[in-house]
Design a protein around this nucleic acid. Structure first.
Lengths: 185, 185
DNA sequence: CCCATTACGCTACTCAAGGTATCGATACTA
DNA sequence: TAGTATCGATACCTTGAGTAGCGTAATGGG
């Protein structure tokens, strides 16, 4: 007896992965502003209405795509410092991947003036990482939120201002800076 | 003998300040996304075409408004640490002012996918402060750019994720964190 | 086998907003 | 008075997000 009974009617085709891939390649090729839902649908070989049947808005689609692309944060390391350093470098590497940084910056920007999207972004993308980091680092919520603001804010600001991801030397400086705060509050 | 001869034709009316004020109040009241150029023009008592005669795009208008609202950075303090601390607190206070934070976050977001706007934002808003800080702190360009990414990125990320400006305790932590890097690179 | 149910593709559509074109009126200089 | 450039007003173009309706394809149940 399955826990969730299969709902009646035609089952959904497994196109989520295809749409996510099309979203990232479209953003990479054309930029966030030109990555319209029409174009993403065309790139995925899917009707636009199908996309809106699965995600309520373009921002929700991008957010879901980002959640899928980021995956779980690797919490590896011998101590808290190593864990946090690994998480920062992982975030920097992810944001530097083609399309992800631009998509992230774009959806973040849209969220500023859109409370609904802000809630989606906060609960679906930020909260899981915040909770995982709280437990792994044994730090209070306010401090973890501060770390996230610093790390993600810095990486996105660089991406937005220059159009390029942050170079390795500056990522090193970012890791070093945050670790000092962790070790000597 | 005036240095710049007055150009022929009807002179421009002195409405820049009026439009800037209308822009901030409109953003404050309605949010960045709902602060359309039509509404800003109406709030300023000015025709939309007049706005487009003076600023080439909405982003350029917002940027000019921000440049006007921020004004010059105060570089006061006995030593480099005090100067940088004062600059960070000044930035945090400005971004917390009604409308400014939302406008900043909005135009920043738009700039991510708009190279033209990115150039305007970089040259007209960031560069003056970067240059002034380079001289006041006697630090290389890359380091000052890193500081700007950290400070502005953190403040904007908080503003974008929560819709509220950063609280005083976190601004203190931000100042403390950056000062450590300044004093012990 | 037929039916209810749901998903898909397609076309067409609405709506909002950035940005443009045109034109008459106005303010200033020479 | 002629020339120039601005302002306001109206109308318009274009793009893109999101929706509605319809025929069709799958699936499970009777």
């Amino acid at each position: 007896m399955p826990v969730t009974a299969r709902p009646p009617g035609r089952p959904r085709a497994g196109i989520d992965a295809t749409v996510f891939a099309a979203t990232l390649t479209t953003v990479t090729d054309l930029g966030y502003a030109n990555a319209t839902v029409d174009r993403i649908a065309a790139a995925a070989g899917v009707a636009k209405t199908t996309i809106y049947r699965r995600w309520p808005s373009k921002g929700a689609l991008i957010t879901a795509c980002l959640v899928d692309a980021f995956g779980p944060v690797p919490l590896t390391g011998a101590d808290r410092a190593e864990i946090l350093a690994a998480a920062i470098r992982w975030a920097a590497a992810k944001i530097a991947e083609p399309g992800i940084g631009a998509a992230f910056a774009g959806v973040f920007t849209d969220a500023v003036s859109d409370p609904d999207l802000r809630r989606i972004l906060s609960t679906q993308l930020q909260d899981p990482y915040r909770i995982a980091l709280q437990e792994a680092l044994d730090e209070p919520e306010t401090r973890v939120l501060f770390f996230i603001d610093v790390v993600i804010g810095t990486l996105i600001h660089r991406m937005g201002m220059t159009g390029e991801p942050m170079v390795a030397a500056d990522v090193d400086a970012l890791v070093d800076m945050v670790l000092r705060v962790l070790e000597r509050p």
